[in-house]
Computed example of a mutant assay.
Amino acid sequence: MTDDVGRTAEDLLGAYRNRQPIEPVADRFADAPLSLAYEIALAQVEDWVKHGDTIKGHKVGLASRAIQRQMGVSQPDFGHLTASMFHLENAPIPTGTFIQPRIEPEVAFVLGKPLRGPGVTIADAAAAVDFVLPSLEIVDSRIRDWAIGIFDTVADNASSGGVVLGSRPTRLTDVDLRLTGVNLHVNGELIATGAGGAVLGSPLNALVWLANTVGPLGVTLEPGHVVLPGSMTKAVPISPGDTIVADFAGIGSVTALLEGPR
């Protein structure tokens, strides 16, 4: 099984390098526990770090009912965010780095204190957050046609792709994340709306879930790290040349510019 984990991780790493999707990997691991999918993901993260990338945070995926219905799953998952995934707002993002990207608006947490589960409470999570930022996550799948189940997306580092952070920090005491609404525009057209309450009842609940899930694995959420708690809307397909804007009530806006076709 260890050999199968290594080969699958290599296949997914190859998909990153070649920008060519692969067939779903779950069929290789019939009846295997989800922990094995996380081993596959971690093997990729270790390879990225070995070659000079650095871990800058984590993401919670599949946190809203809209996303779960869209993906046909019933539980959240998590992935790692590395430095190479972060892109500056209003700077063209190379589209050649993605295979089949989609966009998700999220309220990003920036931690001021460490968080490590189990046993993390809402109070612990709120006390650990330094500030929040408006953000757009570019999700991508190395699995052909997004034909994923929970095992596939976990093995694929929770379908991570890229992150664009806005530049206006907001303190938690200045906003009620449950009631925060978002309007998502692509090329000036309103594509989707949502609210923070769609993310496990509150994005803070997703932060608690993450800390208590990764803690037993020996992972601490570190000060300065970014945590993406999950999308407030369904994931929307995007294309080269698109301009995406997410406006968050009380938090501000963030803009992602995709480089045009060549």
Rank of each mutant, 00 (worst) to 15 (best):
T82S: 07
K59F: 06
S135Q: 07
V45E: 05
V132G: 09
L228W: 06
F131Q: 09
P101I: 05
M1I: 12
A26H: 08
I191A: 11
D3C: 00
V227T: 11
G61M: 09
P101Q: 04
A41F: 01
S239Y: 13
A249S: 04
T233W: 09
V132A: 10
A125C: 13
R102Q: 05
L184G: 02
D130N: 06
G57I: 14
R144M: 01
M1W: 07
L34D: 11
E39S: 07
T121A: 13
P169N: 07
A15Y: 00
V107Y: 13
Q68L: 14
T255K: 09
M1P: 00
P101H: 03
P114I: 13
A66N: 11
K59W: 01
A32D: 09
V25W: 02
L13N: 08
Q70K: 11
R65C: 11
Q100R: 01
G250R: 04
R65F: 11
P240A: 15
K234F: 04
Q44K: 12
A26G: 00
I150P: 00
P101N: 02
L179M: 12
A83C: 02
I40T: 05
H80Y: 15
R28Y: 03
T173W: 06
V107A: 01
I55L: 14
N90R: 05
A37W: 03
L258E: 03
E222L: 15
V226H: 12
R142L: 06
G166H: 02
I150D: 03
V227I: 15
L200E: 14
I122A: 15
R69E: 15
A123E: 14
I238V: 15
E89V: 08
I150W: 05
V163N: 02
G61F: 10
G166K: 08
G166W: 09
I55D: 08
G96K: 10
L12G: 03
E89G: 05
E104L: 14
E46V: 09
G149P: 01
T54Y: 00
I251R: 10
L42D: 13
